[in-house]
Simulated scan of single mutants.
Amino acid sequence: MPENSRMSGRRARWIFDGHVAGIGTASGTRLVLGCWAHSPFGPFGDVMIERRDGHRVLLAPDPRTARFIAATYVFDEVRVEPVRVTAKGGGWTVASDSLALRFTTGRRGPPGLVLRAVPRVLAVRPRWIEAVGLPARLLRGVRTCGTAGAGRHEWYGARDLHPIRSAGAVFEGADLGPPAAVVPPVRFGFGSTPRRPCLVRVTTTVEER
């Protein structure tokens, strides 16, 4: 079984630890970056894109990762291409064959301070994530747990949050314009990102039911 995956009873469980950035753009295209320092597939980055017309695209770095993500979420198109993510201080850059993305984060506000105050051992537990699910949905417009594809269940254990202050993206040669709210919510799975562009430190648990 790959690293960062294990059996829970008779169920397979995969754990991904890293960052997720949700960014809207003036063009109506919304982007969700996953940058995973630890995962069953090793470190990697992926990008989920929903265009203004609702077309959903996955950019994943290799076939194995693409198959797992495409089985867990819903896309109209899957592209296997290198996704290179570089972070230095508050500046992030993402480059692939079809996407160039950059963004800058600001200082954490009250939501980030609250998330950091929760001990990691508690923040990543499925029962805790389920307990804070309703407040998160009411206050931030996000769901922390739910069903996924292929008979799977997911939990998002958020541990920090920084607002995104500036961003720019070019997809398929077209400038997507300045950052905007993530509206309407993206439709890759049961949940979306917060409406305001932000970078979240997160541990994602995927379990086969």
Rank of each mutant, 00 (worst) to 15 (best):
F190I: 06
D97L: 11
T205L: 05
L176W: 02
A136H: 04
G151V: 01
S192R: 03
R140D: 04
L122H: 07
V121F: 06
T144H: 01
G90N: 06
A117M: 14
V121Y: 08
G189W: 03
V170W: 03
W92T: 15
R120E: 05
L134D: 04
F190Q: 09
T105D: 09
C198E: 01
G177K: 09
R187Q: 14
T203R: 15
T203P: 00
V200N: 01
T193I: 04
P185D: 10
T144N: 02
G191I: 00
R137W: 12
W92P: 08
Y156G: 01
S96K: 13
F188I: 04
S166A: 15
L176K: 14
T93V: 08
T144W: 00
R159N: 01
C145R: 05
P111K: 09
L101V: 15
L176Q: 13
A100C: 08
R165E: 07
L101S: 14
L99I: 13
G141A: 12
F190E: 03
Y156Q: 03
Y156W: 14
F188Q: 11
G141E: 02
S98L: 15
L122T: 07
G189D: 07
D97Q: 13
L176R: 10
V200M: 07
T203C: 14
P135A: 08
A180P: 01
P194H: 13
G133W: 02
A181P: 12
I129D: 14
H162M: 04
V142A: 09
E172W: 04
G157Y: 01
G168M: 00
A131T: 00
F188E: 12
L138V: 08
T204D: 05
T147N: 01
R116F: 07
G151Q: 05
I164E: 00
T147S: 10
V118I: 15
P179D: 03
S192K: 02
P184M: 11
V186D: 03
L101Y: 03
P110W: 15
V182Y: 07
L161P: 05
G177E: 06
L99F: 10
S98Y: 05
G149Q: 01
P111N: 10
P135T: 06
R102C: 15
G177P: 12
L161I: 06
W92A: 02
G91Q: 11
P197D: 11
G146Y: 00
L99N: 13
L115Q: 06
F171V: 07
L199F: 05
L199S: 07
T204A: 08
L199D: 07
A95F: 05
R127K: 10
L138A: 13
R159V: 11
V124D: 08
L113Y: 12
G168P: 07
P163W: 14
G141H: 11
T193C: 14
R195T: 09
R140W: 13
G141F: 14
G189H: 10
P178D: 14
G151S: 08
T147M: 02
P119R: 05
A123S: 12
G173Y: 10
G106C: 09
T204Q: 12
L113A: 12
T193R: 06
V186W: 03
L134Q: 10
W155C: 01
S98A: 13
F103A: 15
T93P: 07
R152E: 09
